[in-house]
Structures are given as structure tokens and as C-alpha cells.
Design a protein around this nucleic acid. Structure first.
Lengths: 146, 146
DNA sequence: TTGCTCCTCACGTCACGTGAGGTGGC
DNA sequence: TTGCTCCTCACGTCACGTGAGGTGGC
């Protein structure tokens, strides 16, 4: 389904002991490069997330190895970032409810985030209106009326 | 017209030599606190702009003293920031055309900035749509149709 | 041997926030 | 003496970018 994952899929015998989610036998394992390509992130970003405690891949020969749970978690991180949440917030919002990881965003927090984004939206729209006026464009982007 | 300016207006005899725009006699002079209140900025922000070379107030008794030209320049900085421009860009865009300072934004740069903001707008609108769905709100914020 | 991918420091960027410790004039 | 406003370091924050210098396996 995915070139990166099809060609670079690895298998690992066991995870390191004590790891929160050690990849078990025959589970797919990905390198940092795999995930970077898949999610459109840099290696640096993935290492940074790990440093912030958002990811916790096992090590194999000094390299980071990501299992399905790590992939699931990273997908949530990327999704939450698109919602405009900070990494600090994301770290506290991702929880595991037995059947997988989810973004536990309370209704209150959700409304608060909406308010923040609406504020940013207004600022950007005001800036766009001003810039379009400066560029000699009409604010509503309709052709000139007679 | 402005309480801050009316009550804290100072007069200074001469500017320091070599300064690009030394306040001359009987020109109004403002403190950093005056400008912070007037423009809704922090003292730290004003000092930071100075450090970046965006402002260059004279000193009087160790204190920063801002003249009308500094005020004019700061107004431009604040306006440009609202357009989403970086301080580095702003520094290069502010020019003095004999009759005052202006933001020299080329048509090309203007269009480029519009494109950037339109991209941000799209991202924020997508995030808002998602958040409203999560919060159980309708995307277009209209009441439920029968 | 070369090329590729990965690694760990560690400093840089952006626009400030936030104390720490001190000064000057009412 | 207290309160207010100002000052200069200087480290912290946010989310990474960007080398520097080195490793491992084809």
C-alpha cells in the first residue's frame, strides 16, 4: 500500500525489556527514514518528538526502530499538530483506551482551540484585505463592477 | 489626544551627535513606557526591536528617549507585523523617501505574502472544520436544517 | 573505496518572556 | 523609606534547522 513500507519493511525478533510497547515477533518495524517519508517530516522532527517524550522507539544497533504503536502515535501527533495544538498539549492529550490511542480533547478544550483559531483567522483575513488593497486587488476577489 | 502622551510628554534640548535622527529642540520625546502603552507592546519587545536594529532611540540619563521619527517608524513596524512580515523583512522594507518613512513592498513581494497567508488561511479553516466536527458543531455554523 | 542511512552533540533561528539585581527621582 | 519606572545581563520558550564529525552495512 505504501512504497516506503513495502520496500523497507523489516522484521525484528524481540523488543528491549522495559520498553512501554516493545515490538513483538513478526511485527513490522520501520526506520526513522521510513516514517519521515511517510509523514512528510524531517529526521530532526522525529528525534525532537522523542526528546520531548512524544515517541519512544526501541533501539537496534544504535538505530531507532518504530513499531505499529509508534506509527499510530505519530499519526495522532501529526493530526493534532494540524489542529494547532502545541507539543506539550499533545503529549497530555494522547491516551490509550485499551483498544488503541486517541486524542482525548475535552469539549471545553475543543471550544477554546476553536476560539484561538478563529482569532488567528480574523487576523489573517484582515492582513489579506490590507495586502490586496496594497496590491491593487479587490477585497472579495470579484471582477470589477461597472 | 492621548492620555499617555498628554501627561508624560517631555521636552529635550538636543540629541546626541551622530544619531541618525536626533530629536531637535522642542520636539516631543517619549519614554519606552509611553510607546509600550500606546502600541500595546512590552518593554522587552521595544528593546528587542532596538537590538535588531529596527529602532534607534537616543539616550538621556541612561534612559531611552523616542522622538517623532521613532514613533513613526514603530507605527510602520507594528503595521508590517500585522501583515505577517518578519522583523528581518521589515527592517529592509522600511525606507525614508524624503517626506517620511514608508513600507516599500514590491508588487511581487506583496503577492508572495498574499500567497503565504492564503496558505495559512486554508490550514486554519481545515483545522476549524475538523474541530467543529469534533465538538459537534456544523461546519458552516448555520442552524440545523429540517 | 564510495554512497547511503543512520547516529550524537551542539549551536542557530524566530520573537520575544521572565526573572535577577541595580539605578534614579519624586 | 517606599513605590515607580527604567536599566542591563542572561537564561528560557517554541519547534525545529543546520552543520560537524563519526558509524555500519551493502
Amino acid at each position: 500500500m505504501n512504497d516506503v513500507f513495502a520496500t523497507e519493511l523489516l522484521l525484528v525478533a524481540d523488543g528491549s525489556p522495559g520498553h512501554p510497547s516493545p515490538p513483538s515477533a513478526s511485527e513490522p518495524v520501520y526506520t526513522i527514514g521510513d516514517l519521515a517519508k511517510r509523514f512528510g517530516l524531517t529526521l530532526r522532527a522525529l528525534r525532537f518528538y522523542e526528546n520531548r517524550g512524544l515517541l519512544n522507539p526501541v533501539r537496534g544497533g544504535g538505530r531507532r526502530l518504530y513499531g505499529p504503536k509508534d506509527v499510530e502515535r505519530l499519526a495522532l501527533i501529526v493530526k493534532a499538530k494540524k489542529l494547532g495544538l502545541t507539543l506539550t498539549a499533545i503529549q497530555q492529550l494522547i491516551v490509550d483506551d485499551g483498544e488503541g490511542q486517541t486524542l482525548r480533547l475535552s469539549h471545553e478544550a475543543c471550544m477554546a482551540q476553536i476560539a484561538i483559531l478563529e482569532g488567528q483567522l480574523a487576523e489573517i483575513e484582515a492582513a489579506l484585505a490590507e495586502l490586496r488593497a496594497m496590491c491593487g486587488l479587490t477585497g472579495d476577489r470579484q471582477p470589477d463592477r461597472p
